[in-house]
């Protein structure tokens, strides 16, 4: 029986820039950062209160996939095709304000929904995430 999800992959266009975005802007913690292969590293981060859940910041690179796949995937990521996940927070207005000040791009400002208050932001590659404060 499956018990938990421990890793999820997010395809990023530039690992260095993703590292900065996820740690310095979102405030996530680096779990593992080891060099792997010629143009990438094994880089995982976790939300501050969820150390057992690792987001694998996986580079879209020719060494990992065919050139055709890499080119297609890069275009798709860039144009915001992938909605990855929902993050929750205790206070969405404070979190929104902090991320906004840090330059995170929001495509939806905090808005009341039937389940709580929700905003949507994009990472530095184009992946989007929902930020929610659940009722």
């Amino acid at each position: 029986m499956i018990s938990k999800m421990t890793h999820v992959t997010v395809y990023v266009l530039d690992q260095e820039s993703a590292f900065d975005f996820y740690t310095n802007k979102l405030g996530f913690k680096v779990v593992t950062d080891v060099p792997m292969g010629k143009d990438g590293r094994w880089l995982t981060v976790s939300p501050p209160e969820q150390p057992g859940f690792e987001i694998v910041l996986f580079p879209v690179a020719k060494s990992n996939m065919s050139k055709e796949t890499a080119d297609t995937l890069r275009e798709l990521v860039k144009k915001g095709t992938f909605g990855i996940a929902v993050f929750t927070c205790r206070d969405i207005f404070a979190t929104y304000e902090e991320l906004r000040v840090k330059g995170v791009e929001f495509t939806k400002v905090p808005t009341k929904e039937f389940y709580g208050t929700e905003a949507i932001f994009k990472d530095d590659s184009g992946n989007w995430f929902s930020l929610a404060q659940i009722n």
Partner: peptide, 14 residues
């Protein structure tokens, strides 16, 4: 042994 820190499936796939 960097691979000890990476789930096998990812390491194999790559």
């Amino acid at each position: 042994s960097p691979l000890a820190f990476i789930p096998g499936c990812f390491a194999e796939k790559n």
